[in-house]
């Protein structure tokens, strides 16, 4: 059974990283799918790799699981070099994007597969499988059911139970929730996070949805064109994106260029800030005159639950602002929005 105690992350006694990626590169012919990725993932951490499709996330995860080998670089698992170790020798397990359930077998046979491969007897396998089905909130009556008769969410849970069966030290997830509907995804995100806390295992998760990453992760790594561009806690990355790519990836954002002490698009002086770009979150713009003012026309008004999103036609082009639902501005209204340029985060590229 999985250890039920929560494990503290980053305790000084436990300094060997669960996984240490050392300059991993993977080339497919002329394509460089991974470029020099270096990263330490701590024991018990929930680490999420986020990036647009084609950024090399899946390639990276396949190398971590041993399903592919890097062209160069090394991978240490608890300090041991496992770069060339085949997947069946590694104490890790993966939940695949397609789930890859064995569809000619029953739920129970799927969950037991890893144990069967390890030569565990039929009785012990079954006991463990029933425990695991309980853990992922599927009842014992799912045991004999064919996986082809399970719904999307149930298949998800079967895949998770199957990966947990051998009690792996590290679990990998390759966008396992991407095919599910919004509500089910939200439920499973919370459950996954809870499971990770309860088991104290290291989870490495890939997604292209930043929202998913923010909800679950201890730390997030952002990938672009096969390289890790920024690693940090969700709030670090949200508040202090390293560049415009990360800022845009983190949600809707307004970006204004600073050149020679002026805001280029607004043609306004902005002394004391180096050249680069100002990152303005929609909530940083307010319809007051307390900061740097922008004259604009409201183009669209969208109701987002308790808040409204306004699309503004400004001298700098389309900008996006978010206000409480009490805001009375309607499409077509003239307005002045302003922001505090000193509080705004600046990136150099």
């Amino acid at each position: 059974m999985i250890a039920a105690e929560p494990q503290m992350t980053g305790t000084p006694a436990d300094t060997t990283p669960a996984l240490s990626l050392q300059r991993l590169s993977r080339h497919f012919g002329a394509t460089r799918a991974l470029r020099d990725v270096s990263l330490d993932i701590a024991e018990g951490e929930f680490f999420t790799i986020v990036g647009p499709s084609g950024s090399g996330k899946t390639t990276l995860l396949r190398i971590l699981a041993g399903l592919d080998r890097p062209t160069s670089g090394a991978l240490l698992l608890r300090g041991q070099d496992v770069t060339l170790q085949p997947p069946n020798k590694r104490p890790t397990a993966m939940v695949f994007q397609s789930l890859a359930l064995f569809d000619h077998r029953s739920v129970g046979q799927n969950v037991e597969f890893a144990l069967k491969m390890r030569g565990v007897g039929a009785e012990a396998r079954k006991t463990r499988a029933l425990e695991l089905l309980e853990l992922v909130r599927l009842g014992a009556d799912y045991y004999g059911r064919p996986v082809t008769q399970c719904s999307g969410g149930e298949r998800q849970r079967v895949a998770l139970a199957r990966a947990l069966a051998s009690d792996p030290e590290i679990l990998f997830f390759d966008e396992p929730l991407s095919a599910l509907d919004y509500r089910l995804r939200k439920t499973l995100e919370v459950e996954l996070r809870g499971l990770q806390r309860r088991t104290g295992r290291t989870f490495v998760y890939i997604t292209h949805s930043l929202e998913e990453a923010m909800v679950m992760s201890d730390r997030i790594g952002i990938m672009k064109d096969g390289a890790l561009v920024q690693v940090g806690t969700p709030s670090q990355i949200y508040d202090r994106p390293r560049d415009r790519f990360v800022a845009r990836f983190m949600g809707e954002v307004n970006i204004l260029e600073i050149r020679d002490g002026r805001l280029v698009e607004l043609d306004t002086p902005l002394p004391g800030r180096a050249d680069g770009y100002l990152v303005l979150r929609p909530e940083a713009l307010s319809p007051t005159e307390s900061g740097l003012p922008i004259r604009c026309t409201v183009l669209e008004r969208f109701q987002l639950g308790s808040r409204v999103q306004l699309h503004l036609d400004t001298p700098a082009g389309l900008m996006i602002a978010e206000q409480p639902a009490s805001c009375t501005l309607q499409a077509g209204d003239e307005a002045t929005f302003s922001f505090d340029p000193d509080a705004a985060h600046r990136v150099s590229e």
Binding site: A65, G66, L67, P86, P87, N88, T92, A93, M94, F96, Q97, S98, A100, L101, F102, D103, F113, A114, M117, R118, R162, A163, A165, S166
Partner: peptide, 16 residues
């Protein structure tokens, strides 16, 4: 008609 990821999954779960 079948998902070759199943073979990856088997390998990952400890099958030779």
């Amino acid at each position: 008609g079948y998902d070759p990821a199943q073979e990856d999954a088997a390998r990952d779960l400890g099958a030779t």
